[in-house]
Amino acid sequence: MNSILQIEGLSKKFGKIEAVKNLNLSINQGEVFGILGPNGSGKTTTLGMVLGVVHQSAGTYKWFGQEPSNDIRKKIGSVLETPNFYPYLSARNNLKLAARIKGVDFSTIDEVLTTVGLFERAESPFRTFSYGMKQRLAIGAALLGNPQALILDEPTNGLDPQGIAEIRQLVTKIASRGITIILASHLLDEVQKICSHVAIIRKGQLLFSGAVDSILGTTDSLEIGAENMVALQQHLLNYQDVKEVKQENGLLIVNFSQKPNPADLNQWLTNQGIYISHLAYRQRSLESQFLELLKNPSKS
């Protein structure tokens, strides 16, 4: 797999405050990589460093396996914190300016405006835009010239529910084109919905980094419900590989020693004369994992 971004020992001190501490991260091609952490955990500072606007106190980073340079930044589309544009320039002129800096042909501007749904407003000055439109224009500017990687910092911050839904759809659409996306967010739910990989950061320190599935995923547990819960529980204890049966919210949570096959279990229970009303894999929520990690950072 091709490395998109490799961060080694990156640190940033603002006076006495250590905003980022010895951060190591590896982001590969095709990933939708979430950087998750509470507000003030160093997400934006980290992105600022790899984008060349914040000087690191220590450590190195490489884009596409190469040393950082101005030309490399032209291959990355970024929205850092807020959409930054000239308020008196139209959407199109703002994009022209960005295209000029990136050395990208103007011909992609219309396409980008269409992708972010601003084609009709192309000639309106930026200052007349709603926050959601500004945010979309920023994503549009980031998409100019088909970047190999896209950095989105809190892209849904300050948006209304409809705006949030639009941006998430847009991100999913972009990700489906195979563009690597790095998304910083303090919203678990957002990372869980959009990202394939996640790094969890607290107080500038990395707590966890890996595939979202590995932290969330399906577990080796099933939720089962039936009319006769007592009989169900008794029978289940006799089923193969069952480790533990707990009752929770009117359902039985059954832990297996290895991944169970729900179809086999259903068949077996039917043969025992028990007809189940609920059967599902138990999803671990990122939230519980996240809170666990925040409580107990040494676990990672």
């Binding site: 984008l51 930044r73 032209k74 850092l80 807020t82 930054n84 960005a98 800096i101 990136k102």
Partner: peptide, 21 residues
């Protein structure tokens, strides 16, 4: 100073201009 107010100087660098440029 507009470049700072609008934070466009920062964006220009992010988009690939060098600080010298």
């Amino acid at each position: 100073t507009n470049e700072y107010t609008y934070r466009t100087l920062r964006q220009n660098v992010i988009d690939g201009l060098s600080r010298n440029e």
